[in-house]
C-alpha cells in the first residue's frame, strides 16, 4: 500500500516538474528591493486538477481500507471539511457506501498558543461529529500539509474522543516544510516552498472558486 502511495507521489512530482513551474531553484536576492514589491503568484492547481486529485484521494482511501464501512472522515476546519464532503461523495459513487463525515477544529489543541503566533482561535465553529471513533478507521482530511503541527493537534484531539483502530491522513497539497515526523497517507499534490511563501487553497464551498495559488514571499536575510 505504502509503495503504491510513494510511486504515485514520485509520479506527481515528475508531472509537476514537466508541467507547471513548481520547483524552487529560483534565486533569492535580498539586495534588490524590487522583488519585494511584485509578488509572484502561480496557480499550482486548477479546478480540473483539484477534481481529479479528490477523485484519486477517494480511490486510494477505498483501496487502503477494504472494510470501507469502518471508515470515517474528519475534515479539519475550515477547508478540510468541504474536501472531506467531496471525498465522501466520491466514495459513495465508487462503493455505494456513505461514510460519515465530521468537522475537526484543532484550535483547542494547538501547541503554539503561548508564542502568540496563532490566529483564528476565537471563531465560533468547533469540532463536531456524531459517530463513535472507537474501532474506526479515521481519515483526517486537510487542505494544506505544512509543518505537521495541525495534524499533531488533530491526533491529540481525536484520541481524546476515543481509540480509533487506525488514523490516516489525506491532504490536498503538501508544502514540505515539516517540523514533525508526520506524513500524508494520501496526497493530492506536492510543492517545494519556503516558510516565506504563501499557499492559499480556495474552494467553491468557502471561497466561490476552486484553485490553489502559490505566492512567493521574500525571504528575510537571516533564516532563524
Amino acid at each position: 500500500m505504502h509503495d503504491g502511495a510513494l510511486l504515485k507521489s514520485n509520479d506527481l512530482r515528475r508531472r509537476s516538474e514537466a508541467g507547471l513551474t513548481l520547483t524552487s531553484n529560483r534565486k533569492i536576492c535580498p539586495m534588490t528591493n524590487a522583488s519585494s514589491e511584485e509578488l509572484e503568484k502561480t496557480i499550482i492547481m486548477d479546478a480540473d486538477l483539484i477534481r481529479s486529485s479528490v477523485h484519486r484521494l477517494a480511490q486510494e482511501i477505498v483501496a487502503a481500507n477494504p472494510d470501507i464501512h469502518s471508515v470515517a472522515l474528519l475534515g479539519v476546519l475550515k477547508r478540510g471539511r468541504p474536501l472531506a464532503d467531496r471525498i465522501a461523495r466520491e466514495i459513495k459513487e465508487m462503493t455505494g457506501v456513505s461514510v460519515p463525515v465530521g468537522s475537526l477544529s484543532t484550535r483547542l489543541y494547538r501547541d503554539d498558543l503561548r508564542s502568540g503566533r496563532v490566529t483564528g482561535i476565537t471563531g465560533t465553529t468547533g469540532t463536531h461529529f456524531d459517530f463513535d471513533v472507537d474501532g474506526r478507521n479515521v481519515v483526517i482530511v486537510d487542505d494544506v500539509l505544512s509543518t505537521g503541527r495541525t495534524v499533531r493537534a488533530a491526533l491529540d484531539e481525536i484520541i481524546d474522543y476515543g481509540r480509533p483502530k487506525r488514523i490516516q491522513l489525506a491532504c490536498l497539497v503538501d508544502r514540505r516544510l515539516r517540523e514533525l515526523p508526520i506524513q500524508a497517507d494520501f496526497l493530492g499534490w506536492s510543492v517545494e516552498t519556503t516558510p516565506a511563501d504563501h499557499v492559499s487553497v480556495r474552494l467553491v464551498e468557502t471561497d466561490g472558486e476552486d484553485v490553489v495559488l502559490l505566492e512567493r514571499g521574500v525571504e528575510e536575510a537571516q533564516e532563524q
Partner: peptide
C-alpha cells in the same frame, strides 16, 4: 460554545490542554 461542547463530550476525555 466550544467549551460547552468539551463538557458535553459523550465519549472520551472531557478536557482540553
Amino acid at each position: 460554545p466550544q467549551f460547552v461542547a468539551v463538557s458535553q463530550r459523550e465519549s472520551g476525555i472531557k478536557k482540553v490542554p
